[in-house]
């Protein structure tokens, strides 16, 4: 017992040599070890703050830092490259973000439409077999253009077209037009995604607008009446705006197929319902006919003889298919005929 006491006393003396690491606080301080943060809600001592400010602040901060360090030293540690590293927990203090949390990518007009209609993207093959060229041709990318050039080395000039017109150039123009249209649609998708309110081809001011834009603006404005500009007066030699994407801007210029048909609405709807409700099962007509024929033939075979029914023993009842059960070599043999003899051996 003496030894134990001695050791304990020695340790006590050792500890007394050092200053303590414990701190007493009236209210507990709030720690956020993840961001090395400590908030001390205890009241400050006004008297000390006035008379001995710097020393008081130093002591106060020292105590709070000690508390923070105590909890940091308790964290699980790791040794990385000769130094001891404490793993910090997730910080509890939430700091504001710089930008919003990113949401899902907005759908393009086509993607939205395809989703509504349930249209799935079909994957194109990288190469398809071309019958005229008699070889495999890439559908896109490397050497696709070469293959096309090879295939369409000559182009037909239709009868109603000026024979001097360059059909190759026409084809290139058509393609360029498509590319431009696609680009405009891409831009429109971006505008839609950003939810920017933009005028649909209005007047942009004298500095910005080109003559083409002005013409577009006039055309759009004229057709923006209740009667889509039908009764608007025309100036002599007035031009209509033309070009890619202009038609979409002019109200009434691009008509959609009307949903109103010659039949009255009620009838159309009734037909639709009928077609859904009176669905009949599908029949394989040929198969059904062959079965029927077989039946008839069997009946003809069995009926005139009227031999009476076979004894229903064992695996009998094969009358449907006709013929007897193979006899497994026990029956009469026809020497000239070659028949499968015996049961099938495995």
């Amino acid at each position: 017992m003496d030894i134990v006491k001695e050791v304990l006393e020695k340790q006590q003396r050792d500890l007394e040599k050092y200053k303590p690491i414990t701190v007493d606080k009236h209210l507990e301080v709030r720690l956020d070890v993840g961001s090395l943060l400590c908030t001390d809600p205890n009241d400050l001592e006004d008297n000390q703050l006035k008379n001995n400010r710097e020393q008081y602040l130093l002591d106060l901060t020292r105590d709070n830092t000690q508390l923070l360090i105590n909890s940091v030293w308790e964290l699980p540690t790791e040794r990385i490259d000769e130094c001891i590293v404490a793993k910090l927990p997730e910080p509890t203090t939430v700091l504001p973000r710089l930008r919003k949390v990113p949401g899902p990518k907005p759908l393009t007009k086509w993607e939205k439409f395809a989703k509504e209609k349930g249209i799935k993207k079909k994957k194109k093959d990288k190469k398809v077999y071309d019958t005229t060229l008699d070889k495999w041709v890439p559908t896109y990318g490397f050497k696709r253009a070469d293959a096309e050039k090879e295939k369409e080395w000559v182009l037909e000039v239709p009868k109603n077209v000026d024979p001097n017109e360059d059909m190759f150039q026409k084809k290139i123009d058509l393609r360029n037009e498509k590319v431009a249209k696609n680009e405009i649609q891409r831009m429109k998708n971006i505008v839609r995604a950003k939810k920017v309110e933009v005028p649909r081809g209005g007047y942009f001011g004298p500095e910005v607008a080109s003559s083409g834009q002005l013409l577009t603006a006039v055309t759009v404005a004229k057709s923006s009446t209740a009667s889509v500009g039908k009764f608007q007066d025309k100036l002599p030699k007035e031009k209509q705006a033309r070009g890619i994407g202009v038609k979409e801007l002019i109200p009434g210029a691009k008509r959609k197929a009307s949903h109103i048909s010659a039949q009255p609405e009620k009838e159309v709807n009734l037909d639709l319902i009928k077609s859904v409700l009176n669905k009949k099962p599908k029949y394989d007509i040929e198969k059904a006919i062959s079965i029927q024929k077989n039946e008839d033939k069997l009946q003809r075979e069995t009926n005139p003889a009227e031999k009476g029914k076979k004894g229903k023993k064992g695996k009998g009842g094969k009358s449907g298919k006709g013929g007897k059960k193979p006899k497994g070599g026990r029956g009469q043999r026809a020497p000239g005929k070659k028949t499968a003899v015996g049961r099938k051996r495995r």
Partner: peptide, 17 residues
Amino acid sequence: YKIMLKKSGQKTPRIEL
């Protein structure tokens, strides 16, 4: 302040500023 880590006789050091 700069933190000075001093011996405390335990694992956790004593802090001086």
